[in-house]
Simulated assay, not measured.
Amino acid sequence: MVRRLRKTKKSQKFNYNKNRKRANQNSRGTGKIKCLEIRRALDPQKNLATNIKEMGLVYDVNKSIPVPNSKQERKKLAKYVNGFLEEDASDAEVDLESKFPKIHVTQQLEKDANEHGESRFRLPKGHVKFTTDMIDNYGFDYKAMSRDIRNYDQETWRQFRKRVRKFLSIPEQSVPYLERKGWLDCDMSDPSDPRWKEYCTDDEEC
């Protein structure tokens, strides 16, 4: 049964505690820009599309890289072959500073993207202790490690080799152990060093 209009109006009450202007802005907004370089270069007097274009970035990928139209491409090629269309000068050098006044934003983003960040990966303490105990007992004989009675997970010698090499690739965890063993001058690629002799590699059978 449909409710009567008079009762519906009586049940509707205006919420005086709600800021309608702020709610409207939040519903239309796209959120805060997290990129610090872009946020600093934004001009509040211009819309977002113009700001992004001045930085040398793309606001709408569909407009920047449209779907190729084979019919238009054939027409353009025919005009070029028949001499009705001059050679495209898009490959000529363009002054980026004049075309994109805020090109420094794009350059800074490219620089940050090309920098290799330091890995923050760390092994658990129990993992490090088990690995160092195995090295103390068997050196780098991975086959002997796999036969140890504490190998509850039944890891193969290749898994132990991967475990040891991963441990040695993290300086924050491996350097104190190597200092205690006196192996800081060890070179893994030096086959003449007996302290670093690896057994059960891919080049030899175990």
Rank of each mutant, 00 (worst) to 15 (best):
K21E: 15
E87D: 12
T106N: 05
E115H: 15
L57G: 01
E115D: 14
N51I: 01
Y16R: 15
E204C: 05
S119Q: 06
G56R: 01
N69E: 01
N17V: 12
L123P: 04
R161H: 08
N69K: 02
P191Q: 02
D141C: 00
C206W: 05
E118R: 13
K21S: 12
N137Y: 11
D60I: 06
E179P: 02
N47L: 06
R195P: 11
K21T: 13
L96A: 13
F100Q: 02
K181F: 01
M55T: 02
G29R: 01
D112Q: 08
N19P: 04
H116C: 14
T8E: 14
D136G: 06
I170T: 01
K21I: 13
P66R: 00
N62E: 15
H104T: 14
D91W: 09
M55D: 02
S189T: 09
Y177K: 01
R165N: 08
V164I: 03
R6D: 01
R147I: 05
E37A: 05
K63A: 08
R122I: 04
I170A: 00
K71F: 08
T30N: 13
P171H: 01
E37Y: 01
Y142D: 03
S146D: 07
E198G: 04
E204P: 03
G139K: 02
F130D: 10
C206H: 04
V67T: 15
P68I: 06
A78C: 05
